[in-house]
Nucleic acid binder design. Structure first.
Lengths: 139, 139
DNA sequence: GTTATTGCAAACAATTTGCACCCAC
DNA sequence: GTGGGTGCAAATTGTTTGCAATAAC
C-alpha cells in the first residue's frame, strides 16, 4: 500500500520539519544557500551539506519541488502550493502564474494509475513586456 | 519589430547550424557532453566550451530548450518539437508524453501580448509503474 | 582590417561525499 | 549500543571564462 503524504510527514525528522517551515514562509521559491542563510538568521543553525541532504530527501518524497533557475541554481518550493511561471529568456525573471491551467488534466491522468503523480511543473519561456520593449527600441 | 524565428535562423553560424542538426536527429533530448561526443564521432570536432556557448545562445534565442535532469545535468532539445514528460522521482526516468495538453492555452496566452511566449515545458513528477511495484512489494 | 568564433586550460560554483561525531531511543 | 542525523572539509562535476589564435566578412 502506498504511503499517504500525511503518513510521510509524520516520519520527518525535526530538521526536516524546520526546513519545511521555512519553505512554507517563503513567498515563492528559495535556493539551498538562501535557505541555509535564513536558518542561521533565526539561530537555527544547520550545515549547508545537511540543508542539501534534506532538500534532496524532501524532493524524493514528493513533498518539495525543484526547478532550475536561468542562472543555474536549484530553487525549492513546497509541492502543496502550486507553482507555475512565465520566465523571460532575456532578463531571467520568473513571473508566477496565479492559476494552474492543467490541474484538471492532472486529475484525469491520476486516474489512469500508470504513473502516480505527486506534482507537476509548468513553465512558459519567452520575453517579458519590458524586455520586449527594450529589444524593440534599443536595437 | 520582433524578429521572426525564420529570420533568426538565417543569422546562425555554421557551427550553430551543425548543432541544430544534431538536435534534430536526437530522439528526445541530449546533454552538452553527449552532443560534444556526438560531434567528434562524426569528425565534426568542436570544443566542449564552444558547444556550451552555442547551446546557451540557441536557448536565449528561443530555438532550443533546456531542462535539468534528476541527476543535475542540462538536457537540450529543439523548441520546434514539443517536449513534455512524466518523470519518476525514484528511478529518474523521464517518459515523454505524446501530446501537449496545454497548447490551446498557450495560444490564448499568446494573444494577451503581455508576455511573448516562445515555448513552454510541462513535467509531471511521481512514480512510474515499475517503481510503484518495487516500493510496494520490496519494502 | 575589423569583428565574431573557437580551443584550451584554468577558474568557478553548486552540489555531493567521506568520515568522525553525536544524539535519540 | 545501534542507527540515523549532522558538521566540516575535501572532492566532484557541470559549466563558464580569459585569452590568444583563427576564421569570416
Amino acid at each position: 500500500m502506498e504511503k499517504s503524504l500525511v503518513e510521510m510527514k509524520a516520519q520527518l525528522s525535526s530538521s526536516q520539519k524546520r526546513i519545511i517551515k521555512v519553505l512554507k514562509h517563503t513567498q515563492y521559491e528559495i535556493s539551498a544557500q538562501e535557505l541555509y542563510a535564513e536558518l542561521r538568521h533565526h539561530n537555527q543553525n544547520l550545515g549547508l551539506a545537511t540543508v542539501y541532504r534534506i532538500l534532496k530527501a524532501l524532493t524524493l518524497k514528493g513533498l518539495a519541488r525543484v526547478r532550475t533557475s536561468t542562472n543555474g541554481e536549484s530553487l525549492y518550493s513546497l509541492v502543496e502550493e502550486d507553482r507555475h511561471y512565465l520566465t523571460c529568456l532575456h532578463c531571467g525573471a520568473s513571473i508566477p502564474l496565479a492559476d494552474c491551467p492543467i490541474c484538471n488534466l492532472e486529475t484525469t491522468l491520476r486516474q489512469s494509475k500508470l504513473f502516480t503523480i505527486y506534482y507537476h511543473t509548468l513553465e512558459f519561456f519567452g520575453l517579458c513586456s519590458s524586455c520586449q520593449q527594450q529589444l524593440n527600441t534599443g536595437l
